[in-house]
Nucleic acid binder design. Structure first.
Lengths: 349, 349
DNA sequence: CTGAAAGCGCTAACAT
DNA sequence: ATGTTAGCGCTTTCAG
């Protein structure tokens, strides 16, 4: 079948150890034999088998990466970061998507440890047991983007989401908004409210009340996001701004506003967390909090490899976010100098 | 270190073969011993090693996937399709991005065959030698989205790009456009002009001339795309519509049009190939040709596994595309009933 | 400098 | 039904 090291050894008239030496650059071999071996290898189209090697060395050179959805721009960015780091460190990556399903995630993790990856990076969906088990059998794991409160011992590379939301909230209130709606995410695998908490805390810190009827949560699917946004905007609402806690939510808000003929930012200001590419393309371009997805992936990869090399694991400080101001936010309608006095100018009930 | 099958055998007081049997469900074992083995395995937190198994069975259960860029929405969709199929077939996937660099691609492919993946799926960048070599050593490979003309023997799962462009061209000309610009892609790793050829052929078939000054090509980077689009739109151009041959190009066109205060579709119609999510978000929503990325990934995965199982390899028919009409195209300015007589209403030189 | 030999963890005959 | 044995392809002592 496939040519093995043995074939090469035979063809070159040397022992297999010698072949291993020249091919791995270890030990010393005379220039003459080296050439002979190289020639034989080339002639036979020899490709060393990583599985043979891994069995012996007990390292596969692979790292596992589990994300909720590769199709999500933020996830994709993070994946790219991991890929970049892995490449520079000579590792390859096994990717899979859990789609927010803990069961599926557990299956993926199990497989990854079976594959004996050198470490696992994950945006965990929430299957605590699977992660515990993986860690217990000695697999290095680091979380990225979000952590599992139940597993404080697992290192995590996080962004300063709270800071981002705070900046956005302050920006909006600074514009004069007093009734800003919060469109958040709910459900399993969601960062448990750090964003929402930051929103509330910021308002409180400013001495402003949070209007409970204006904070709603959607499951992380398009339909749910759309429904939540619709609920928020179409009930002759008095929200003058909406802060969407994620790009899916932001998308929903934009779509609903257009559907309802609500002008942005004249009638309502919209801003979101996650500075995905389309933020700049929509009209008006959306103000957003940029989170360093690529960087997070890169660092998570560094961390997991460092960790698997048994050096200490630490919890790094959250990576900074950046508020990117574009055209989707303005002073609230009805503000002094505002364009319109009052009433509900929109059609519909 | 890690517990092996031997440890489990010892703990259960049986032979290692028996452990293997109960864990893999092969052969027959008395219910009693089965329980004993299972208990031991659980107690020891035993995780079978795929590398040991792979060495023996000569199958790793992994498939390689190499794309230009995971961050590209179309690629991401395709990756998701591969992931879905792989999961349903019990395989895992090793992902890497070549970023259009043949050298990098060659390195990735080499690593993949070293890892002894059961097959490789790729949107090839163009390193013919690496692919030839991979095939030669017996690795099943199938291309997706684009093929390498130099390697006609490699199966490829393609979309009917030509059909998509034709539909779009006919749609635009049907609207009355006689000067439609073609914003295409150039450079390595690009489908060698099937799109452009379809554009030209369609026009020719309609008895319409193609205006050479209106067909331009950009390298597959944002800057280049933007520059090309700018060149096309700002020279007091007389193009009444632009057909962008990819979402990056479409994005550039939209951005440039906005920059130049060119109204869409009043001043110029814009449409593109690739129905990415933002097409619906921009204003007006963009008419686009949808290509079945997910489906292509799924099928490519089926094909590569089928192929690695040594059943025949065939060239399937191209997958259909769909013209999704939205609001970005209208009759050419100056058409009968048109909104404006002539002259250049835009600012700038 | 180089070869022989011992496994790495597992499966698959082959014996019992 | 279950234990023994022989490798899968490679790295790595250990001799020579």
């Amino acid at each position: 079948m496939a040519t093995t090291i043995k074939d090469v050894a035979a063809a070159a008239g040397v022992g297999i150890a010698t072949v291993s030496r020249v091919l791995s650059g270890t030990g010393s071999v005379s220039a003459a034999t080296r050439e002979r071996v190289l020639a034989a290898a080339r002639a036979l189209d020899y490709r060393p088998s990583a599985v043979g090697r891994s069995l012996k060395t007990r390292r596969t050179g692979g790292i596992g990466l589990v994300v909720p959805d590769v199709t999500d721009p933020f996830c994709a960015e993070l994946v790219a970061g991991v890929l970049a780091c892995a490449r520079s460190l000579g590792e390859h990556v096994l990717l899979d998507a859990a789609h927010g399903d803990p069961e599926r995630e557990a299956a993926i993790v199990d497989r990854l440890v079976e594959q004996r990856v050198d470490g696992i990076i994950a945006l965990p969906a929430g299957d605590v047991a699977a992660w515990e088990s993986a860690v217990r059998v000695g697999c290095a794991v680091v979380f990225a983007d979000r952590a599992l409160p139940a597993l404080p011992a697992v290192p995590a590379v996080l962004a300063d989401d709270a800071g981002g939301v705070r900046a956005l909230t302050e920006y909006l209130t600074g514009l004069g908004h007093r009734r800003v709606a919060y469109l958040g995410a709910a459900g399993p695998g969601q960062a448990p409210g750090v964003r929402e908490r930051a929103f509330r805390d910021t308002l409180a810190g400013l001495g402003l009340p949070v209007h409970e009827d204006l904070v709603v949560a959607a499951r992380p699917e398009r339909d749910s996001a759309y429904a939540a946004a619709a609920g928020l905007l179409q009930r002759g609402t008095d929200a003058t701004a909406v802060l969407a806690a994620g790009h899916l939510l932001g998308e929903a808000a934009v779509l609903v506003a257009r559907e309802l003929d609500i002008r942005v930012p004249a009638d309502v200001s919209i801003a979101m967390v996650d500075d995905v590419p389309w933020a700049e393309l929509c009209d008006p371009p959306l103000t957003a909090v940029a989170r360093p997805g690529h960087d997070m992936g890169y660092r998570a990869c560094e961390a997991v490899l460092r960790d698997s090399a048994r050096r200490g694991a630490h919890r790094p400080v959250p990576l900074p976010t950046e508020l990117v101001i574009r055209g989707s936010c303005g002073p609230p309608r009805g503000a002094r100098g505002g364009r319109r006095a009052s009433g509900d100018p929109r059609g519909g009930r």
